[in-house]
Simulated scan of single mutants.
Amino acid sequence: MDSHSPGDHAAREREDEAAPCAALVVIGDEILSGRTQDRNIATIARWLGARGIALKEVRIVPDEEEAIITAVRALKDMVDYLFTTGGIGPTHDDITAESIAKALDRPLVVHEEAYRRLCAYYGIERFTPARQRMARTPEGAVLIDNPISIAPGFRVENIFVLAGVPEIAAAMLDSLESMITGGPPLKSRVLDVPLPESAFADALTAIAGRFPTVRIGSYPYYRDGRAGAQIVLRGRDESRLEEAVAAVREAAGRAGVTARLVRE
Rank of each mutant, 00 (worst) to 15 (best):
P62R: 13
L108G: 00
V110H: 02
A120P: 07
A163I: 01
L32K: 10
I68F: 07
E197I: 08
A97V: 01
R260E: 08
H9T: 12
I95Y: 03
T43R: 13
P194V: 03
A42S: 15
S188W: 11
V232G: 05
G253R: 11
A171V: 03
S178K: 14
P194L: 04
V245H: 00
R106K: 10
A54G: 09
T205Q: 12
A255V: 03
Y219H: 13
I159R: 01
G140W: 00
G140T: 01
A252L: 00
D80V: 11
P196T: 02
E66F: 12
Q132I: 13
R210N: 13
A10K: 12
T84V: 12
R73V: 11
Y81P: 02
I124P: 09
A247T: 09
D77I: 09
R46I: 13
T36C: 10
I216Q: 04
E30L: 06
G217E: 04
L233C: 04
L75P: 01
L24F: 07
S175K: 03
W47N: 06
T181G: 14
P166I: 12
L75K: 04
I69G: 08
A130K: 12
P6S: 09
I44R: 02
Y219F: 11
L195P: 02
D105P: 00
N40H: 11
T85R: 06
E177Q: 15
A101G: 00
I207E: 07
A199R: 09
R117F: 03
L108N: 00
V214D: 06
A169M: 15
I27M: 02
L191R: 02
H9F: 15
Y115T: 09
L173Y: 04
A101W: 00
A141G: 03
E177W: 14
L204P: 02
M78I: 14
E157N: 03
A130M: 14
V165W: 01
E238A: 11
A252W: 00
E250L: 12
E65S: 15
I168T: 05
R249G: 06
V245C: 08
I60A: 15
M78Y: 12
D202C: 14
S175D: 11
W47R: 08
R73P: 04
D145Y: 00
G182L: 07
S175R: 04
E167Y: 14
E13M: 14
A23M: 10
L173I: 07
L24M: 10
S218M: 10
R136E: 01
Y81G: 04
I216H: 04
L108Q: 00
A135E: 01
R116V: 05
F154P: 00
T85W: 05
A130C: 11
D237H: 01
D38Y: 02
E13T: 06
D174W: 13
Y122T: 07
G217D: 05
A11Q: 12
E17Y: 13
G253N: 08
T258C: 13
K102G: 01
F200M: 07
L118A: 01
T96L: 01
F127R: 11
C21N: 14
I69F: 08
I150W: 07
K56F: 13
P129C: 08
M1L: 14
A141K: 02
L191W: 01
G86P: 05
